[in-house]
Amino acid sequence: MALNTPQITPTKKITVRAIGEELPRGDYQRCPQCDMLFSLPEINSHQSAYCPRCQAKIRDGRDWSLTRLAAMAFTMLLLMPFAWGEPLLHIWLLGIRIDANVMQGIWQMTKQGDAITGSMVFFCVIGAPLILVTSIAYLWFGNRLGMNLRPVLLMLERLKEWVMLDIYLVGIGVASIKVQDYAHIQAGVGLFSFVALVILTTVTLSHLNVEELWERFYPQRPATRRDEKLRVCLGCHFTGYPDQRGRCPRCHIPLRLRRRHSLQKCWAALLASIVLLLPANLLPISIIYLNGGRQEDTILSGIMSLASSNIAVAGIVFIASILVPFTKVIVMFTLLLSIHFKCQQGLRTRILLLRMVTWIGRWSMLDLFVISLTMSLINRDQILAFTMGPAAFYFGAAVILTILAVEWLDSRLLWDAHESGNARFDD
């Protein structure tokens, strides 16, 4: 018995066209964080690309023209004298008006014999932002004059995390709450300039795509075929072959399989920071003279006294001054041990922890910024005066060393310790 099946006739004509040209192939790229070699397709503007294995951002879609970056830099340069030299806060102490600005706080630190601690604050609040705007201006002028731009481009990517104007702005709020127990506070004209400078700096850093600047100024022929001998440069993120001198053909720094002496430098910085954190938390970090009496505060006791007036601000200072430094030390110690013992479990967790400490590390400088600003506000000789204690130097040095330890660690070593050939990683 035959089955009668109805015929289905399409209502619209289906047209099949042959592909007349070869589909576009992607360029081969190595991930600078996990060293995976993959094919990167062509990316349009405002599109980002991520590593298929570790999800690290390979290409950032946010990109401004150099002219727009230069305009932002010149605007920031105009704001800087007002943000640093004009009063941020006014207080009335014992019937006398006192003005506080950024430069005055750094000068008070240096004047009291601790120039190293003052230079830490100076670099993060004044030096690094000033280098940022002058570097962008150098790129703008240098591109037109045919100057060598490689050193500036190499420095810009590392400079971003040292620009800490946003953290200093939080420190202004913390210092205001600490001082309000002794005097009446009012915002100064410099505060508005400083807030504007923070906003412009944040926007500029978020749109400063150094890798795209490398592509514009020093374009290189990408690798179009897969080759395990391809290496990625950690300076400019170019994937290719080393030249005859073993250097990256684009930025001219040595092109090595792994960062040289990464573990040794990381261990040295980490152990030194552990040693410095002990006096930083045991010795007094601030000293207040009130009517001839002397009151010393460690980091913890200062947080407890701050909690009596504002528990939320005390929580912020606790996280930045105690929780973050010790968390960074514990995480980095764990990561280094996992590399030495070739741990194969929990790779995803370790990668996330490394990215976390990379982002939060700079916030530990908050305590030094609060001390710097408070020193310029309260300084009335023996009637009422505020000065920093010996722990300030140890704390600042420990924070900087932990930042350097994270920067010096080559994250690809975590993958080397893991089993080879993993296309995915999980716990």
Rank of each mutant, 00 (worst) to 15 (best):
K13N: 08
R17Q: 08
Q295P: 05
W363Y: 14
A175Q: 02
T402R: 00
L409N: 07
I96W: 03
K178Y: 01
L153F: 02
M72G: 03
I8D: 11
I98W: 02
G26Y: 06
H340P: 09
E419V: 09
T204L: 09
R97T: 15
L347K: 11
V195D: 01
L373V: 02
L3I: 08
S338I: 14
E86I: 03
H418E: 14
R158E: 12
V317W: 00
M375Y: 02
R294Q: 06
A128I: 01
I14K: 09
V324Y: 13
R355S: 14
Q295L: 13
M120A: 04
L94Q: 00
G421A: 15
L263Y: 11
I339E: 12
F318W: 10
V399N: 05
S301G: 07
C251Q: 00
F333S: 10
W415S: 09
R348Y: 12
R245W: 10
I167Y: 03
L234K: 11
R258Y: 08
H237I: 13
R260N: 10
T374H: 01
L366N: 07
H237A: 11
V203M: 08
G113M: 14
L230I: 13
G20M: 06
L271Y: 08
V399Y: 01
V189T: 15
G105P: 07
I19R: 09
G346H: 14
L23C: 11
H261P: 01
W359M: 13
N422V: 08
G171C: 11
T15P: 07
Y394I: 01
L165Y: 06
V198S: 14
N148I: 04
V179P: 14
P222Q: 13
L234P: 11
I185T: 04
T239R: 04
L404G: 07
I116S: 06
G246R: 12
S305E: 12
G95T: 02
I172C: 11
W64Q: 07
S119H: 02
R247I: 11
E86D: 06
T134W: 11
L414Y: 07
L352T: 13
G61H: 15
G240Y: 11
D60G: 09
M365V: 04
G190T: 02
D181F: 01
C236A: 00
S338C: 13
R350Y: 11
K111Q: 10
R247S: 13
P219Q: 14
Q29Y: 05
A392V: 03
D426Y: 14
L257F: 14
R221H: 13
I91H: 02
G292Y: 07
C343K: 14
P390Q: 09
L270I: 13
D297N: 03
T239M: 08
R362W: 02
Q180I: 11
T239C: 14
I351C: 11
I98H: 02
S338G: 12
Y241W: 10
A268F: 03
P52S: 05
T110D: 15
V331W: 10
R59Y: 06
T298I: 10
D181M: 02
L336P: 05
R259G: 14
W162E: 01
A423S: 15
F333M: 13
L23W: 06
G127H: 03
S135M: 02
V275R: 00
Y138F: 13
R348Q: 12
L93G: 01
A83W: 02
T15Q: 07
M120N: 02
M356N: 10
K111I: 02
C236Y: 01
E21S: 09
F192Q: 06
D35I: 02
H261A: 12
Q186C: 09
V331T: 12
K328D: 00
P222L: 13
M147R: 05
L132D: 02
V16Q: 08
H252I: 05
Q108H: 13
D63L: 12
G240P: 08
P279A: 15
D35P: 03
V331K: 11
G361D: 01
K13E: 06
L270V: 14
V133K: 05
I274N: 13
F82V: 04
E407Y: 08
R247F: 13
S411D: 07
P242Q: 11
C343H: 15
V357Q: 06
S420Y: 07
V232D: 08
V357W: 03
V406A: 07
M109A: 11
S305K: 09
I98E: 01
R231F: 09
T11M: 08
P87R: 06
G190N: 01
M76F: 05
T67E: 04
E212Q: 15
E157L: 15
L191T: 11
T298Y: 07
L300A: 05
M365D: 04
A268S: 11
K265T: 04
S309I: 01
A83H: 02
L169N: 04
A83S: 06
M304A: 08
S411H: 08
P222T: 14
L413F: 11
Q55H: 07
W84P: 04
G188F: 04
N291F: 15
R216P: 06
G396H: 01
V331F: 10
C233E: 00
R158A: 11
H418M: 09
F238L: 12
I287C: 09
D427N: 12
D114C: 01
I383H: 02
F217V: 11
